[in-house]
Design a protein around this nucleic acid. Structure first.
Lengths: 364, 364
DNA sequence: CTTGAAATAGTAAGCGTTTACTATGAGGAA
DNA sequence: TTCCTCATAGTAAACGCTTACTATTTCAAG
């Protein structure tokens, strides 16, 4: 019953790996080259032939093997993105931008999460390199450990050598001469603006809570915070700065501790909106009214900010746009950054959005 | 100056596609087979040789080409996941579970978003098939359009034939005989429970708002809603059911309209927490107090639910666990579902979580 | 000293595409 | 009629790995 194998037909007949281009070619009575050309459409194929081929394709349910294609041909049409956590809205919105722009440019999107582990982050870059993604986008603040920076720089060079590129999204440069592209937002400026707003409302003793120590995002936000203080001639008080983490849980527990120490302050700057949400929770629990008794601000303007009561005054970061720009830049032909200045660095602005969580201090 | 090419060295020397296994082999003075074996570690290689190879690997910054590997060998070590929107917390938490479990099982995760477009969803399944992912996980409710179902069933068969599998996560079966695996949650049961809770508090006229019409999730939630009504002998009133969408914006605007029509009801069932958030916003705007004047419940128990004031009484769905299970099932060796019953269908439970948004109706 | 199993290493045949070359036929121009 | 040019289609050589076979040592047992 079984027909004699034609010479081109492979003997093994693996489980059921689906139809190959050879099957389509055979069904349509043409060579594989013709099928390939009909499908890619970059070479003339007679209309009748093409129709026959497409019919066979649908009949057999054929889809090209992306790996064979990537191996033989040009590009993988995939971009990689490395974030901390898929469910953290800060990252989720950036990821949404990346995903949308990637799909607008006909690319797929390989998403991985580091869970805040920098060793894992390095490993993930290698994984992406294995996948030969057209670009890898590294999102969010970075550790400032020198060894880590060096290792990441090596990877940036390797990606560059392979014709891919490393896009730093919302994190500082790896140093001059390291081939990367950069998309950032005005982190320091936003922190300055919102701190200054607090000061303009009469606050002098402002607590800063959250964000990992030795982390670029924390450094920038604190820099803006300090600059605003300095500009108004307010003394920096180290006892008012409490680094730690970016989660809601951290904001809640640290705020409770701080409340127990009855320190002197009239406003709290949460390192991001999630921390601010935790802070608000702790305050509510103690019956401290916001903003009447205490003012609170956050950073990022993720949806929780407007969900909270009082609605949170915060700094708006165009997250989704950031992600889109990262992809645009990644896929643009512009040569990589080889120094400090070039159009491979794009900075989007931030601005404060005033809601209901700030008022002048009570006991001024 | 340029050394004569060795016979094995390719002439072309493409841009800079990075080192290949042949480069490593040459540097270490062994054959490519030996390098491959040293790296995969599934075949004995002398210790000295292995060390020499690993040294060359680091020197050259070599990483394997995943495409060549996938083409030559067994599996791609990648799972695909198709969701509506990366930034929607319902999907984000499922995606987090998928990502975590996948990485625990040594897989990468290809994430794509449909933006609610079912044509796009079909196309994405094909894209995943091109990528030869070990499995594709389809998340969230589905349209019940028969043509769509048939097309998806075709793809399920194609994936199955290729040794991959289609996992339906939180959506109904494609019909008996279609080879899929399923992970769902007790959607109808949760809706029943929370409706019954509302009734037990004395509510009789309950408004149902949100969720697309002709969508499986909406159908299940409404089914539970109706079953609870029926069980208590409360008449179904079609004028109280308002389907539409799943977003916060829909909840807000539809609630405003409904308020203008001064209908008679004492509680509102938001089709999900986001819709409920919108509803709450509209009520707050009109000065209607929750729960004193009106009770409100949601569904899903995403973080917003506890962020809202009053804290939202809702139905807890173990989203992350759902994602993890989807991957476990996908990667398990169990044969695919070929009928209605089998251990290829896993259902996780739901339960209501009582917070502050419900009280007995005022004017009972 | 011979022999045979282990332990290592090498050879080469794919895997499913793409694409540079080559081949064939049909019209037109000369 | 002959030659040249298009329009099509086919051939076969990569692409970078894995792995079934085969080859070479080494060493202990007979």
């Amino acid at each position: 019953m079984t027909e004699k194998s034609s010479p081109t037909e492979p003997i093994h007949a693996r489980g059921g790996s689906g139809a190959t281009i050879a099957d389509v070619a055979q069904a349509a009575g043409v060579s594989v080259a013709t099928v390939s050309r009909a499908l890619s459409g970059n070479y003339p194929v007679a209309k009748a032939t093409r129709e026959r081929i497409f019919r066979s394709v649908t009949d057999l349910g054929y889809v090209a093997n992306a790996h064979a294609r990537a191996l033989a041909g040009a590009t993988t049409r995939t971009v990689g993105i490395i974030i901390n956590d898929v469910a953290d809205p800060f990252f989720a919105y950036i990821a949404r931008g990346v995903e949308r722009q990637a799909s607008a440019e006909g690319r797929m999107c390989l998403i991985t999460a580091t869970h805040g582990d920098k060793e894992r982050e390095l490993a993930l870059v290698d994984l992406m390199r294995e996948q030969r993604t057209d670009a890898v986008i590294l999102v969010g603040g970075a550790s400032d450990d020198p060894r880590y920076r060096k290792q990441m720089a090596d990877r940036a060079r390797a990606l560059d050598a392979a014709g891919s590129s490393l896009v730093l999204c919302g994190r500082p440069s790896l140093g001059a001469g390291v081939p990367t592209k950069m998309v950032t937002y005005d982190n320091e400026g936003g922190a300055f603006a919102i701190t200054d707003y607090l000061i303009s409302q009469g606050h002098r003793r402002i607590l800063y809570v959250g964000g990992p120590r030795d982390f670029s995002t924390t450094a920038s936000r604190l820099a803006g915070f300090y600059r605003a203080l300095d500009a108004r001639g307010i003394e920096r008080d180290p006892s008012l700065v409490h680094e730690g983490a970016f989660g809601r849980g951290f904001g809640y527990s640290r705020m409770r501790e701080l409340l127990d120490q009855d320190m002197d302050f009239t406003a709290v700057f949460g390192a991001n909106d999630l921390v601010a949400a935790g802070i608000l929770e702790a305050l509510e629990e103690r019956g401290i009214r916001v903003p009447q008794d205490l003012s609170v601000v956050g950073y990022d303007d993720v949806p929780v900010a407007s969900e909270l009561r009082p609605r949170l005054t915060t700094v708006r970061v165009p997250l989704e746009e950031l992600g889109r720009e990262a992809v645009r830049l990644a896929l643009s032909q512009s040569p990589h950054d080889a120094g400090a200045s070039s159009d491979n660095t794009l900075t989007v602005g931030t601005h404060i959005v005033i809601r209901d969580s700030v008022s002048p201090p009570r006991k001024l």
